[in-house]
């Protein structure tokens, strides 16, 4: 039993079992509290709501593991969405076809990746602190977006986009499919590729990584480029979900993504963290939010509960660590 626990812990990332326990607890509590919780409709709506925050959290995840931060994720997503919206509107608006959408999406991803790449280059080659660089980029992109849209909404997109934002593939909501695919890609990228390996090493000690022959500057640039691209995917999804683009949409999610990363056991100092526990953390946050919603609370109460939940989890982790080390001393 103990060996199994240790193996699961190692394979999936530390703390997964604790998070699963939490998830089960929350599920049971809400099932008992309201009959509407254990319904297909509720799980369906959760599956549609989760991916937006999920994709943005993935965009935040990789920089944090590398010992950095990306505070520009929301506006990168907005600007990317804006790119797609502009291309759609320039090419027929409501009558635009699938090829235009695909081209627009590619352009959106390119724009997201580009803004990430600029950040990465400044962080890698100038050596400035990621919090500061991404903060400046955030202010810039917000300004750019507001300048381009004059603070308004952009809408008037073809109908088939509704099928992406609200449709199903094999009975699974399309946004959820996109998110799970993205999470899988991230998981493989971080745990199985040379780039991912380098991300962890850089997160622990960038100079030692450099001495060991890792191309640290290229890796840093790539981290923020990939983060930007992931933001773009979130931006495209947001466009299809709301059928409009507004700069500033999702602003409140910025710090929630950081919260989800910490909840998922990402080391705030960098060097350690896994995708699976972060996905679990996201599911817990979503369940909390949906459950509270069914009980009549609004999103704001959920936000408060999320914050308190993070504090509670950190305290529990501290207790566990203290307990373990006092055990070790006794041995």
């Amino acid at each position: 039993m103990r060996a199994l626990y240790a193996r699961l812990d190692k394979e999936l990332g530390t703390g997964v079992i604790g998070l699963v326990g939490f998830l089960l607890l929350v599920l049971v509590v809400f099932s008992l509290a309201t009959p509407q919780f254990l319904t297909v409709a509720n799980f369906g709506s959760m599956a549609f709501q989760l991916p937006e925050l999920g994709l943005l959290t993935l965009a935040m995840l990789m920089p944090i593991i590398s010992g950095g931060f990306n505070l520009a994720i929301i506006y990168t997503a907005n600007i990317s969405g804006l790119t797609l919206a502009w291309i759609l509107n320039q090419n027929g608006g409501v009558d635009a076809g699938m090829p235009v959408f695909l081209f627009g999406s590619a352009a959106a991803i390119a724009v997201g990746a580009l803004s990430g790449c600029v950040m990465g280059l400044v962080i890698a080659y100038v050596g400035a602190h990621p919090i500061l660089v991404s903060l400046a980029m955030m202010i810039f992109l917000r300004g750019l977006g507001e300048f381009l849209t004059r603070g308004g909404d952009i809408s008037g997109f073809p109908d088939f986009l509704h099928g992406i934002g609200h449709g199903f593939i094999l009975g699974i909501p399309v946004p959820l499919v996109i998110f799970l695919a993205a999470a899988l890609v991230w998981h493989v990228l971080l745990n199985r590729t040379r780039h991912g390996f380098s991300v962890f090493m850089i997160g622990s000690n960038i100079r030692a990584a450099h001495y060991s022959g890792i191309h640290t500057k290229r890796t840093l640039t790539l981290i923020y480029t990939l983060s930007g691209a992931m933001c773009a995917i979130a931006g495209i999804l947001m466009l299809t979900r709301f059928n409009s683009v507004r700069v500033g949409h999702g602003e409140a999610l910025l710090l929630v993504t950081v919260l989800a990363c910490f909840l998922g056991g990402i080391d705030p100092f960098g060097g350690f963290g896994r995708v699976v526990p972060v996905v679990l953390a996201l599911v817990i946050l979503q369940v909390l939010s949906s459950g509270l919603n069914l009980l009549g609370a609004n999103q704001h109460l959920s936000t408060a509960v999320w914050g308190l939940f993070l504090i509670a989890v950190m305290i529990l982790r501290w207790l566990a660590a203290t307990y373990r080390s006092s055990n070790r001393k006794r041995e």
């Binding site: 919260l259 910490f262 100092f269 408060a304 509960v305 914050g307 504090i311 305290i315 501290w318």
Partner: peptide, 30 residues
């Protein structure tokens, strides 16, 4: 929270940010 439970300040203040903002909006209904 930072001192007693040895949680680094960015984690604590992001948590209290969300907790305070959520409660404020919830209680005042905006």
């Amino acid at each position: 929270l930072i001192h007693r439970f040895r949680i680094i300040s960015i984690v604590v203040t992001i948590a209290t940010y969300n907790a305070m903002f959520g409660l404020l909006m919830f209680i005042t209904s905006g």
